[in-house]
């Protein structure tokens, strides 16, 4: 019973968060004083776009957003279009649909971030637990190193790695995602080529994620090490191996919630990492869209990031419901 209650309430919360996020994504751009289309189109005009194209964009925009209609109708148009995968047309690559641009860059972001987040979480937790358990110089070195990586902004480590390993030492190609002349396709050649470019951004994300998780896990495990059940079991003469198992599992639970809460930060940091490495993912797309005032792209990228982060959070929380026995055991609503 407890589990069902938990799942229902989590689902409700995340649906609420999704609604708020979509509303914000819709509303914030409209807070710009004046008609956003006027502002954007006049900015485009300065960029030397032909008046014909301007008029077309203007018309397309009025239609797409229904700017003459009340706000409520506009919102419905926005939501229904987004659900159909229609995210509008790009300004800077007119008339390419935004969804095309996104489907080109999304895979790069995914292959970079998903392994970095999952591996970083696993390695970081193991390291943190070992550091807490062993103590002494192990603890000191692991903790300080993790703290340095944890506190380092993503892009700072990226810049240092890029300069040191790619520019000075030349071990990795300096930026980009594949060699010039190559183009994304399902072939072995392309993948082996892209893999060389993938290592460095992946490594910089991985190191920081490991650092963050290790710092958290270490303090959790130290907390557990000092608790009564550990002292009691020790006095009973329970072996080290078994004890580490208990401690690890208990310290793990908060780390799972921690993962849910930090996915958003990780994704945000990874966007800038892409920028540093000139990796053609969502971050670079977002950056070029911001500098080109390509509003439909910015809005679409932020929407996709939000939805992805919310879905990932939701999955982690559901998983937590299955893992934590207290939730299954809870009979009445417990906060």
């Amino acid at each position: 019973m407890g589990l069902r209650r938990y799942l229902v309430s989590k689902t409700a919360w995340y649906l609420g968060a999704l609604l708020v996020a979509v509303v914000l994504n819709f509303l914030l751009p409209r807070l710009i004083p004046g008609n956003p289309v006027d502002v954007i189109v006049s900015q485009l005009g300065r960029g030397g776009m032909s008046s014909e194209a301007q008029a077309a964009i203007y018309q397309q925009f009025l239609e797409q957003f229904g700017l003459d209609k009340p706000l409520w109708d506009q919102f419905w148009i926005y939501v229904t279009h987004a659900l159909q995968g229609n995210l509008g047309l790009s300004f800077s690559f007119y008339p390419t649909p935004v969804s095309d641009l996104i489907s080109q860059s999304l895979p790069f972001t995914l292959v970079l971030q998903i392994p970095a987040i999952i591996l970083g979480w696993i390695i970081g937790n193991l390291l943190g637990a070992v550091a807490a358990y062993k103590g002494g110089s192990w603890d000191k070195s692991v903790f300080t190193t993790s703290l340095v990586f944890n506190s380092m902004p993503y892009y700072c480590l990226s810049i240092i790695l890029l300069y040191g390993l790619a520019v000075v030492l030349g071990w990795f190609p300096p930026g980009g995602a594949y060699s010039l002349g190559n183009s994304p396709e399902w072939s072995w050649d392309f993948f082996s080529d892209a893999l060389q470019y993938w290592w460095l951004p992946f490594l910089s994300l991985l190191l920081i994620n490991i650092g963050g998780q290790a710092v958290g896990m270490r303090s959790m495990a130290i907390y557990e090490l000092g608790s009564d059940y550990v002292n009691y079991s020790r006095s009973l003469g329970i072996g080290d191996r078994k004890m580490t198992g208990y401690i690890f599992r208990n310290a793990m639970l908060p780390q799972i919630t921690g993962l849910a809460l930090s996915i958003g930060t990780m994704v945000g940091g990874a966007l800038i990492t892409e920028l540093v490495f000139n990796y053609p993912g969502m971050g670079t797309l977002l950056f070029s869209a911001i500098s080109a005032n390509d509003y439909p792209i910015v809005q679409a990228v932020t929407l996709i990031i939000t939805v992805a982060v919310l879905v990932a959070n939701y999955l982690v929380e559901v998983l937590y419901g299955f893992i934590d026995p207290r939730i299954r055991a809870a009979k009445s609503g417990e906060k």
Partner: peptide, 12 residues
């Protein structure tokens, strides 16, 4: 907390 802060920051 659930909505990534960077998104709201960018939009605002």
């Amino acid at each position: 907390l659930a909505i990534p802060a960077i998104v709201i920051l960018i939009l605002i």
